[in-house]
Design a protein around this nucleic acid. Structure first.
Lengths: 327, 327
DNA sequence: ATTTAAATTGAAAACGATTACACTTTAGTT
DNA sequence: AACTAAAGTGTAATCGTTTTCAATTTAAAT
């Protein structure tokens, strides 16, 4: 069933049928007959042919490191939501945390005529930088603040500053289990937030007991064991992610210490697991879903070539501190 | 940069360039010169034009109820893995648990020339049934056993049978917090597994204290409160999902009871949260990722028109009982 | 040196839409 | 009634590929 068939059945030209769908001057009379035929035959224009002719695919490419991570899945959910609203389709690329795949997908998506790309950022590399610069279609990055690239990200530093201050109300000797520092947002910024709060409280940031771990429960667990062994005085642990915090809680409980009496602990993310541990985890809620939605809206502005989108091409999202029993 | 440009630069016909990419007889001499030009110009054929001409899009549509659910996200991850291996692309449709969207996406994906569809099943309706029957492109369903449709699903009944038997070793008065019975796999089958184990132990299945809840932590929590109030003798709770189990644990702890001494509890899913609750949750591990991968393989067979794929068009996945502290 | 078969080639016709262009009709003004 | 502007219409070119078909070249076999 092609536009030709419809045109023939309706007794009009293909141009008329095309105009029926895309708008263009068309008499009421013809509009009606075309509508009738289209509905009777349940005809929908072939998307591929449209793309080929117009150069617009109606597709938005989304590049994500992993899907089985609560934060990425939530951002993804927000993206899917919003993309549907503007009647576009999402094309998925999962990088499995491999930088070369990230670049591969960007190039691939550009070639296969995506109308826009959303990249869930991890960290910047020179190669990624040049790829991003070369990329001709609109692209927005989430979760990271890449210079020169439109992005939607969290106020990681302030969030950590706030939660650290909260902990400092009752505790003195703070340890920090951070994310890899190559990750600007989750690694570097979050640590800086902690340090800032510390300094403000008159504690030299050099004295901060800081470790880096790998986002996992096990990583948090092992790191906490180390801390417990070599820093007996620690009475508060700030973790850069919820999962690491839960791992650390395991280690603390295992050592026979009480949370929060002996040691307080905090995470980041407001995962569902935070409500089921005992005590429940005090954490910072980042608006993941909102992040995805915002990214689409920003991209949409870029795609439409709205002049002001280029000006407002960075948006920093807020957060909430969720106080529960672990502090 | 089109195939024409490349042809001109290489001094050959467009047909030759096309053959270079798609295989077809071509002299070594031409192959080399084309390769050189292609590489120099970093040329990649336009996917849309290819689709249009061949009718094959290289796309596999994946329809998922929600992304922010651990099980779906994991299945998705498995799908993405495998789809990449066969050099296809995944197109995403998120239904937000709405049946009409499910149907909409199936029809839409058929029209936009997906080469295959994977539907993460929830429950069957007459409308869905007819849509599935009308669908001309290969489709496979995951997580549910829909009659007449190729599917990959879990052995829900046996899994529940096993875990119930495990609980019956130490407990006598079992309650069951189930999923909505409209969901054949997570609702009906899981309950049947519990009942079967009960009967085998000489307990009339009619006497099973069974509630239905909604997959959420809160749902499990509220349901458990009801059970605690009206069925004081209950000493073991089987839950159809991990999240409900965790909600129930919350209620149990809140009531001042000890797990597992006073009441044992089990879930399904092996979520990451299971390791962080205290005690850790005994559960059944379903191979979600494997499920996604298998679905793609099955679909791939169907897409290639392998005769035997139609015969082996149902695959039932195994499971493991993970014993932890909650029983 | 022929003949025959096989491999290599390019021109041109699809694939299914959109749209520039030129032509008709209609409606609006004087 | 004559003229003009606007709205409605169809033809045909175009988007970037693949693939059929017929022609040509090469290789193998007699």
């Amino acid at each position: 069933m092609t536009i030709k068939d419809i045109a023939k059945m309706a007794g009009v030209s293909v141009a008329a049928v095309s105009r029926y769908f895309n708008g263009g001057s068309l008499s009421e009379e013809k509009r009606e007959i075309i509508q009738k035929i289209v509905e009777e035959n349940n005809y929908v224009p072939n998307a591929m042919a449209q793309t080929m002719r117009t150069g617009k695919s109606g597709n938005i490419g989304v590049i994500v490191p992993r899907l089985d991570s609560e934060s990425f899945a939530q951002i993804m959910a927000g993206i899917a939501d919003e993309v549907e609203k503007i009647n576009y389709t999402v094309i998925l690329g999962v990088t499995d945390n491999k930088k070369e795949k990230e670049i591969y997908y960007i190039e691939q998506m550009e070639k296969s005529k995506m109308d826009g790309i959303i990249l869930m950022g991890t960290y910047m590399t020179p190669h990624l930088k040049t790829t991003l610069e070369k990329c001709l279609i609109p692209i927005v990055v989430t979760g990271q603040h890449f210079k020169g690239v439109p992005s939607v990200f969290y106020d990681d530093k302030s969030a950590m500053y706030d939660i650290t201050k909260l902990m400092l109300k009752s505790k003195k000797h703070i340890a920090f289990i951070g994310a890899p520092s190559i990750d600007h947002a989750a690694g570097k910024m979050r640590k800086e937030g902690v340090e800032k709060a510390l300094e403000e409280a008159g504690i030299d940031k050099k004295s901060l007991i800081a470790y880096e771990s790998d986002f996992t429960i096990d990583g948090g667990y092992e790191t906490m064991k180390k801390i417990l062994k070599s820093h007996k005085k620690v009475d508060g642990v700030i973790c850069a992610t919820d999962r690491m915090a839960h791992g650390a809680m395991l280690a603390i409980r295992e050592a026979g210490k009480n949370i929060p009496d002996d040691i307080s602990i905090t995470g980041v993310g407001d995962s569902w697991g935070d409500k089921i541990s005992s005590p429940q985890l005090t954490t910072v809620q980042l608006y993941y879903k909102k992040c995805g939605q915002t990214a689409v809206n920003l991209l949409w502005g870029l795609m439409k070539g709205e002049s002001d989108s280029h000006l407002i091409s960075k948006v920093m999202l807020g957060y909430s501190i969720i106080e529960r029993g672990s502090v």
